[in-house]
Amino acid sequence: MNLLDYVADRWDRLSLQAWLHVSEVVQSTLIAAVIGVLIGVAVYRSPIGSAVATALASTILTIPSFALLGLLIPVFGLGALPTVIALVLYALLPITRNTIVGLAGVDPAVTDAAKGIGMSRTAVLTRVELRLAWPAILAGMRVSTQMLMGIAVIAAYAKGPGLGSEVFSGLTRAGSANATNQALAGTLGVVILALLLEGVYFLIARFTISRGIRG
């Protein structure tokens, strides 16, 4: 059986797994975005706070994903929960880092003017600073999503949902007829989905970043 026949044959299962894969990655990215932006907003005015937050987040990123997953299994068991926790933790660094860099990069003259013409503290943050940092935040989310697509494959080890299970069954059935097809379908599926998400990010950037600050 060649790859195309295989995919056509197992389309129902593969498309469901593809959907689950994207869904867990996107949800984890969104959770991480909320947390990361909140952390960024909380610390960006303090150089020491920024340093600690980014140092912590980048340390998390250094941890091998398989090791982190292993450590989460005894605590949270198997399935979606440890997977999402691991994915959110990994997604935090790029988003937090870019939020801090983005907010710190806002021209002080602009925030001074915003205060000077009578914007409240919250308005300065939501209408000016976060809007100006948004391209950087979105770029961080994009990097996170791409990273998570690969890590989510490993999460299938902890019985997490998604295309990783294809790769694992391909591995355990090494030598049997469809082993390679299965692993290939899982791997290529992730690559294709990652490219599609890249396109989605491009569109989001197109529609949410003001023309005045688009690169």
Partner: peptide, 9 residues
């Protein structure tokens, strides 16, 4: 962009 585990397997 390919998942590391997929490449390995």
């Amino acid at each position: 962009a390919a998942p590391a585990l997929g490449v390995l397997v």
